[in-house]
Structure formats: C-alpha cells, structure tokens
Amino acid sequence: MSFLRGVLAGLAIGYLTAPRSGKETRDKLTQNVNDLQSQWEEGVAQVKSQVDKLVGNAETKANQYANKAENKLDQYKNEAKSTYNQERAKTAYNNTVDDAADATKSGINKAEDALKLN
C-alpha cells in the first residue's frame, strides 16, 4: 500500500511542477488517476479470478482424496467382514468335525463294550 502512495505522490509532484496550465494539469492528473484506478480494479479482478480458480481446484482435489479414502475404508470393512465370516465358517466346520469324531468314537466304544459282554 505504501508503494501505491509513493507512486501517487510522485505523479502528483510531477504534474504539479510540469510546465502546463492548471486546467491541463488537472485534466491529465484526473485521467491518470482514473487509468490507475482502472488498472487496480483489473488487477484485483484477475487476482480474485485466480484465487477462485485455485479454491475450486483445491475443493476438487479434496473431494477426490475424500472419495479415495472412503473407498479404501469400505474395502477394508468388506475384507474384515469376509475374514470374520471365514473364521466363523472354519470354527463351525471344525466344531462339526469334532462333534462327528466324538460321535464316532462314542459309537466305537459302545460297539466294543457290546462285543465284550457277549
């Protein structure tokens, strides 16, 4: 901001000391101030446009990363459920095999006892 003040002060001093009439100097000074104001507004508009563009790009990237993270989370949840279900199935299978083995052993023991009595 101080740079802009310095430029304006320099312009004012230059125009006030120039060999022109007062009306010409005022008109020239007014035109230059208007030109400077137009340039300033144009620069502000360009900066605002660039900031809006960068914000839009940042939002897009953030959404992409959030979607990737959500997909990974869903993948890990599904894998965990699958592993849990596989472990439950293994346990149920092992229990069934153990029950069948126990029943077979019990049947063999009964058969042996029945043969001993005869």
Rank of each mutant, 00 (worst) to 15 (best):
Y93A: 03
K61W: 12
N118M: 13
K61T: 14
E79R: 01
E24D: 15
V47N: 04
A58Q: 01
P19M: 05
M1Y: 03
S82N: 08
L54H: 15
K110T: 10
G10M: 10
D113S: 15
D35W: 08
Q86N: 12
N71H: 06
Q31T: 08
E70M: 08
G107R: 13
K110R: 13
K28I: 09
D98W: 01
L36P: 01
G10S: 05
S38R: 11
A9Q: 15
G14L: 01
Y65T: 02
K116I: 13
A45D: 09
S2H: 12
I108L: 15
L36S: 05
K68T: 05
E59F: 07
S21M: 02
G43R: 03
K53C: 07
Q46D: 11
Q46G: 04
P19F: 06
V33Y: 15
E41S: 06
L73D: 02
D52A: 05
D113R: 15
E112I: 15
Q86T: 10
D74L: 10
Q50I: 07
L54M: 15
Y15F: 14
V47F: 06
I108D: 12
T17E: 13
L4C: 10
T96I: 03
A45S: 08
V7H: 05
R20S: 08
N85C: 04
Y93V: 00
A66V: 06
E42L: 06
Q39Y: 13
E87H: 11
K105Q: 13
V47H: 05
A62I: 14
Q86M: 06
T96K: 00
L36I: 12
V44D: 01
A18T: 03
A111N: 11
Q86W: 07
A100L: 05
G22R: 13
L36G: 03
I13E: 09
N109C: 02
K105D: 14
A62R: 14
K68Q: 15
R88L: 07
Q86G: 04
G56K: 14
N109K: 10
A89P: 00
F3L: 08
A101Y: 03
E41R: 04
Q39F: 13
E41F: 12
G14I: 01
P19I: 04
A66N: 07
A80T: 02
Q37K: 09
T25M: 09
S38D: 13
D99M: 07
A89W: 00
N118F: 11
A101I: 06
D35I: 06
D99R: 11
D113L: 15
R20F: 14
A103K: 14
G43P: 02
N85A: 14
G6I: 06
Q50H: 02
Y65D: 04
L36N: 03
A89M: 01
V33N: 11
Y76S: 01
A114G: 07
D27G: 01
S49I: 05
D102Q: 07
A103G: 02
S38F: 05
D52S: 12
Q39I: 09
L73V: 07
T25A: 04
Q39A: 08
G107Y: 10
S106A: 10
Q75A: 05
K28Y: 11
K61E: 15
Q86S: 05
K23R: 12
D98H: 09
K53D: 14
G56N: 09
N67V: 03
S82F: 11
A103W: 10
A114H: 13
K72L: 06
L11N: 00
N67P: 01
N109P: 00
